[in-house]
Write a protein that binds this DNA or RNA. Structure first.
Lengths: 203, 203
DNA sequence: CGTTAGTTTAACCATACGGTTGACAAATAT
DNA sequence: ATATTTGTCAACCGTATGGTTAAACTAACG
């Protein structure tokens, strides 16, 4: 926060905290563990971030600001609904493969602390559904897609894309797949999910 | 486990533990808090369940044995795919309204402890996808539904039904709904989700 | 080369937490 | 009636945990 290069330590801490918090959650994470992962003394965590809660919030904001733009491609982009669905599905899955703990982290912590979302709303870039609502209404009117509520459609798009990552242990257990086959299944979804949604709504 | 009426205390503890664990997770829950909610001394928890871990596992098994039969209606029922989807969607949403913390609880703890699923697999009634696979293959062959992989279809059904409950704070934040409107939105899904899926796969 | 401001560490501290113990009451068996 | 087992509690224990402190180190600058 102060001068020139706050790189190094402060960022190393954030990076280590990200890994630990996203894997173990606020409650499961230990300050000592974060310090160890960062290869520094525990006092440094407090020196740069004051408290566990504040360090956590830094991580959470950081994570949310990665996720939000992804959702905004569905909500605010200028392409047609069909293109949006195709692009989002492909991009989001690619994105999440790089950040596997991110969605379950955000969703779990939001469940434990629902008022968090209010703080997020203030920030610029927070996903807003208004434009998408208009677009759906328009495309329903001119007959490109079947009548559907924009909110429900948005939930469905999120659900089909995000859920498999959040529930992967459960899914792998039930379907009986090893890591590799599951990875392939997810890879297939890059196109399958889009087709599924488009079949569901196209006229 | 021992004699006749192990009601009262042992069950009171389980009930209290359920509430606390499902709301706060294994890491976030405190033994004292569970004891307080049960209105008894903390020693009783250890007297009946030995350790926090074991009490937690009792709660987890209990929760999972509620969820499993729900999933089995999709997998093992004798009705057509279309009927299964309609029934599951309606029943599952009704079910979850009664147990709102259940899906996020199971999914979060399974993420923190993926090997848990292996213990679950041993238990009778653990969901198995084999029958469903055959059924989908058959209905694809005779042309009732479009070609689709049974695994992907199963994931999609779960995703569309379960996700809205897991991610409800996020969804409510983005869509900008109060509790009441969100409840209505969920109510609408009892039929909308089934229609959506059937549109997507029906020939 | 001494001063100063920022950075890092080891040693501490207070408390919270899971778990144990021993005394005692209530129920059950003899 | 009395011994024995089972259930319940208050007090206690050892350790883990988030957080603090004071001293040492480093680098910039006069």
């Amino acid at each position: 926060m102060s001068k020139t290069k706050n790189h190094t330590t402060e960022e190393i801490i954030l990076e280590a905290a990200k890994k630990i918090f996203q894997k173990k959650g606020l409650d499961g994470a230990r300050m000592q563990e974060i310090a160890d992962k960062a290869g520094i003394n525990k006092s440094m965590l407090h020196y740069y971030y004051r408290s566990k809660q504040m360090l956590f919030e830094a991580v959470f904001n950081n994570a949310f600001s990665l996720l939000a733009p992804q959702l905004n491609t569905v909500l605010n982009d200028d392409s047609s609904i069909e293109d949006k669905i195709k692009n989002f599905t492909k991009d989001y899955i690619t994105f999440i493969i790089k950040h596997p703990y991110l969605p379950s982290f955000i969703i779990h912590e939001l469940n434990r602390n629902p008022e968090f979302i209010n703080k997020m709303k203030e920030q610029i870039g927070f996903p807003n559904i208004d434009k998408f609502k208009n677009q759906v209404a328009l495309e329903v009117e001119n007959g490109t897609i079947k009548p559907i509520d924009a909110q429900q459609l948005f939930i469905n798009i999120m659900a089909l894309n995000i859920f498999p990552f959040i529930a992967s242990p459960l899914i792998q257990g039930i379907i009986g797949l090893d890591k590799k086959s599951f990875k392939q299944l997810i890879e297939d979804r890059k196109t399958q999910v889009a087709d599924f949604i488009i079949n569901a709504i196209k006229n």
